[in-house]
Nucleic acid binder design. Structure first.
Lengths: 252, 252
DNA sequence: CGGCATTTTGACAATCGTCAATCAGTGTGG
DNA sequence: CCACACTGATTGACGATTGTCAAAATGCCG
């Protein structure tokens, strides 16, 4: 059940067999959550941490004018709101984008985990720092790239992230995101999302049919978007190279 | 020397007298650094952590086309790159925006600090999580606000942050940032920065003369920018209210 | 089949970018 | 003390990306 989560953490720290066992026996409740439901809301002080086991969720904030900004996509294996106890209160909300399987982990379990298992503690902090690095890259994306490249960059990221947890098959992956949600993520309008999507399709950089995205030539998309995956830190710390994410990247 | 740093950490955790003493006696080298110098560069594996003691620094990334995106402003008391050892490598650079006093703290000192002083450890992580929350708000700012409000929002933030470390006097503070740097921060051009700056001035929301910014009526600027300081988490965790940052906000 | 969310399209407007020139401020050296 | 150089600020004209509004088309699900 928690495999994608554990696999992810192993990138961040060297877990012992004992650590892995601890994680596998993690006391938690797993629940299916419907589409567009909030897991936590801004100003909450949640009692549980949440792990996305399957599906797709997001961090977001609402604005006074009804606008929404999505600030992160949470894929299987991602842990949300682990550290709220340190900050005290949520400063944003978390919601599902599609029906998900969500693990609910009581806060005291998290605290025991972090206090008694240094490697796990380190891995969880690693995950948090990767989130931060991703936010920085998203900021670069919004600030300095045109809508087409920005969108291409997002697709590169999701491709690499899904690939690292084994959710990419033959260069394609499930992509259940609506154009409205894409717009809320990229900070542009749905109309413009539609235009850019067609532009990328017409340029042969990706295809999207029936909630499934295919990136036939990742290298071309990567080049177009000037995507550099370093910020995802998906390689063990020792490795030097900027590229590998543990699997092979498709035909280039 | 380290007062602003310690004062900041005390917001994040309850430090004991012993913790405070430890921080005061922190072994570190303090050096003046000239303007526009890199403290660390993308891909570095720095041996020291850095604390800004005075001046102003920033996190940034360069793009292939020569563009620069600034992703954070670092004010006195801010600690940069504390956790690189977990991620392994810098995925961005840090540079001074004006001449600064910088404390260099050897990595092993940081590690002793975090392993032997739980409250300090917690405080440092708190600071890191606040950085992350700030990034999220910047993302909202870029994605969903027009340039004028976005800029106003940034001014609100810097006002509150500087106020919290005692650097605001009579509603004004040192603001040595050039319009080019503002542009690199907001993701717009210098020409547009200039236009928006004049617009805010004309609207009486702030004044900027001789590297000094004055915000006569913070409440009005705050309202214009739809600024909500919660994300800065500058209140002790127990407090409920969304507003206070430990000092009084100026005339409204 | 009907209802509803989502996608697509077109015309038009506005924000923001580009280019290029001028102006102002500051520091340096003769 | 002034000329000079340099950086930063300002301005205007124009163009491009992106937003707005509104309607139509498509696809999905009961």
């Amino acid at each position: 059940m928690l495999e994608p989560f554990i696999r992810k953490l192993e990138i961040g720290a060297d877990l012992s067999a004992d650590d892995r066992e601890t994680l596998k026996r993690l006391i938690c409740q797993v629940r299916p959550v419907g589409v567009a439901e909030d897991l936590v809301r801004e100003d909450d002080r949640p009692d549980n941490a949440h792990i996305v086991l399957s599906g797709l969720a997001c961090r977001y904030k609402m604005l006074a004018d009804g606008g929404r900004q999505i600030m992160a996509w949470l894929v299987p294996g991602d842990l949300c709101d682990m550290h709220v106890s340190i900050l005290g209160r949520m400063d944003h909300s978390i919601a599902t984008l599609v029906p998900c399987q969500i693990a609910y982990i009581p806060r005291n379990v998290i605290e025991e985990l972090t206090s008694k298992h240094p490697a796990i503690n380190r891995a969880l902090w690693w995950a948090s720092l990767v989130d931060e690095a991703t936010l920085r890259e998203w900021l670069v994306n919004m600030g300095r790239r045109t809508a087409d490249k920005q969108m291409a960059h997002l697709f590169c990221e999701i491709y690499v992230r899904l690939d690292s947890i084994g959710l990419v098959t033959e260069s394609s992956f499930s992509f259940p995101v609506t154009q409205v949600e894409l717009a809320d993520t990229l900070g542009i309008t749905t109309v413009h999302v539609n235009r850019m999507l067609h532009q990328l399709r017409d340029a042969g950089l990706m295809t999207l049919r029936g909630k499934r995205m295919t990136i036939q030539n990742f290298e071309r998309l990567r080049h177009f978007a000037e995507f550099n995956p370093n910020y995802l830190h998906l390689t063990k710390r020792q490795n030097g190279g900027g590229w590998a994410n543990g699997r092979e990247t498709p035909a280039s």
